[in-house]
């Protein structure tokens, strides 16, 4: 039985097709990333998966429960951190958790012990009686995740959980999500933070213009794009013109990244020899040279059409 099974989901808003025949499944215990650019249909898909809106067509099953025909048992197994959600700022952290416990029908004793444990895990226990109005963004986000975990969910849905947070809060949340997952619970992570997906996810789906364009393990996705192998080169002094790097053999594209240059090639060995030769000819000292595989960001950009934009940017450098 799959933790999440989405089949042929379709959602229209008037004449706009927001989600177009999306299908995928998530295994129990998996961290599944759902990536896409803004407006790709990520949040609409998550809203359908969490029962907030109904799809125009398609089926959703959560641990075998049909979400559309029998929503409550399916929703009972989910913890949800919606996009741009907020806590009840007029309630204390404690009362926010008590409300969630009551909403999910959790007994009083369990409610109290679970709330105390979660607040402690998320470093909020000392602030439990304070109204959430005075909390920082990071504290509110941590409280939101506590609220989502109050029903001890089998699957946690998170929409951009670390967006706009400071490094400490981000680190804490990611570690706690890993701990949560280590206990066998499933995580569905909607994000446009590719690095976060790369670090956390077992598999990712990339959605663009309402359609899933790829689903695989991050490493497999990277391997599918051999043409996006690259060399990262740093010289001891600035180049007079980046154009000379286009004379390096087997290089398709050049990109400046800080004080380094990234040379895209499908023949890294040949390109290395050519770079060394070029440095010798132009009296340049090479400080470092590394071969890099394609990043998940490269895969994402290629699959969502962002490559063309990057090429255009480089041409103007």
């Amino acid at each position: 039985m799959q933790a999440i099974q989405a089949q042929n989901l379709v959602k229209r808003y008037g004449s706009v097709l927001a989600v177009d025949d999306v299908s995928f499944s998530v295994a129990p215990g998996e961290i599944f990333g759902f990536l896409g650019p803004n407006g790709a249909g990520k949040s609409t898909t998550q809203r359908m998966l969490t029962g907030v809106i109904a799809p125009d067509a398609g089926d959703i099953q959560i641990f075998g429960y049909d979400l559309l025909r029998c929503p409550n048992p399916a929703k009972q197994l989910m913890g949800i951190v919606p996009e741009m959600a907020n806590v009840y700022v007029d309630l204390s952290a404690w009362n926010n958790l008590m409300f969630m416990g009551e909403l999910y029908g959790i007994g009083k004793k369990t409610r109290i012990s679970r709330a105390a444990r979660l607040l402690e895990q998320f470093n909020l226990l000392e602030k439990k009686d304070l109204k959430a109005k005075g909390f920082s963004k990071g504290m509110k986000q941590r409280l939101l995740i506590c609220m989502a975990m109050m029903n001890d969910p089998q699957t946690l849905f998170l929409d951009e959980p670390t967006s706009g947070l400071d490094v400490q809060s981000t680190h804490l949340i990611r570690n706690l999500l890993r701990e949560f997952n280590a206990r066998g619970q499933t995580i569905f992570l909607t994000t446009h933070n590719i690095e976060e997906a790369n670090q956390l996810c077992d598999r990712v789906a990339i959605i663009n213009r309402g359609r899933v364009v790829a689903i695989d393990r991050p490493q497999n996705l990277k391997l599918t794009l051999q043409s996006l192998q690259s060399l990262e080169v740093a010289f001891s002094s600035p180049l007079q013109s980046m154009d000379i790097l286009y004379s390096v053999e087997a290089v398709n594209e050049v990109k400046k990244t800080g004080d380094k240059f990234r040379l895209y090639t499908n023949q890294p060995a040949r390109a290395i020899l050519s770079v060394v030769d070029l440095a010798r000819r132009h009296n340049l000292e090479i400080l470092s040279i590394n071969t890099l595989g394609p990043s998940l960001e490269d895969v994402f950009l290629r699959l969502t059409g962002g490559q063309e934009k990057r090429g255009a940017h480089n041409a103007s450098c």
């Binding site: 029962g51 409550n72 929703k75 919606p82």
Partner: peptide
């Protein structure tokens, strides 16, 4: 407005 409505809708209540 306070962005708490979506959470209510995703809870197990009709």
């Amino acid at each position: 407005k306070a962005k708490t409505y979506e959470r209510l809708l995703s809870a197990p209540l009709s």
